[in-house]
Simulated assay, not measured.
Amino acid sequence: MPKLTVQRPSGVEEVLDVPAGDSVMEAATAAGVSEIEAICGGDMICSTCHVYVVDGPVDALPPVSDEEDEALGFVKAPREPGSRLSCQLPMSDAVDGLVVRVAPTQ
């Protein structure tokens, strides 16, 4: 099972075992990471699952789609080079060890 490290805005880090195929958003919300609001449930319309990809096998992630890029234009926290919607980040063995930091505001 791939491991995902989630850094909360408070600085607390959690390492999660994530079933392959689940998104970073699904894993984080299931683990009680309340800072990821995920209001739309992963439909890529609310931008309330904004994270910063900070380490790990970043190149194994799917590229930002045009739809995700557009949705990232509506994030409340500053957009950075590693900004992604966590609903668009599927976990797999290829991304084992991924590290994301939750945006300070959703």
Rank of each mutant, 00 (worst) to 15 (best):
P2S: 11
K3C: 07
L4K: 11
Q7G: 09
R8G: 02
R8Y: 02
G11K: 11
G11L: 06
V12W: 01
E14D: 11
V15R: 09
V15N: 05
L16K: 08
L16N: 08
V18G: 10
V18Q: 14
G21Y: 03
D22R: 15
S23Y: 01
M25H: 06
A28S: 08
T29L: 12
V33F: 09
S34A: 14
E35N: 10
E35S: 13
E37Y: 01
C40I: 00
M44K: 15
M44R: 15
I45E: 10
S47P: 05
C49K: 03
H50P: 04
V51L: 13
V51E: 03
Y52C: 13
V58R: 08
D59W: 04
A60I: 02
L61Y: 08
L61V: 11
P63M: 08
P63G: 10
S65R: 06
D66E: 15
D66W: 10
E67N: 09
E67R: 04
E68N: 11
D69E: 15
E70C: 07
G73K: 10
G73M: 11
F74I: 09
F74G: 07
V75W: 05
A77K: 05
A77Y: 09
G82L: 03
S83P: 04
R84V: 05
R84K: 03
R84G: 04
C87I: 14
Q88G: 06
Q88T: 13
L89V: 14
S92M: 02
A94Q: 07
A94V: 04
V100L: 01
A103T: 01
A103F: 00
A103S: 02
P104I: 00
P104W: 00
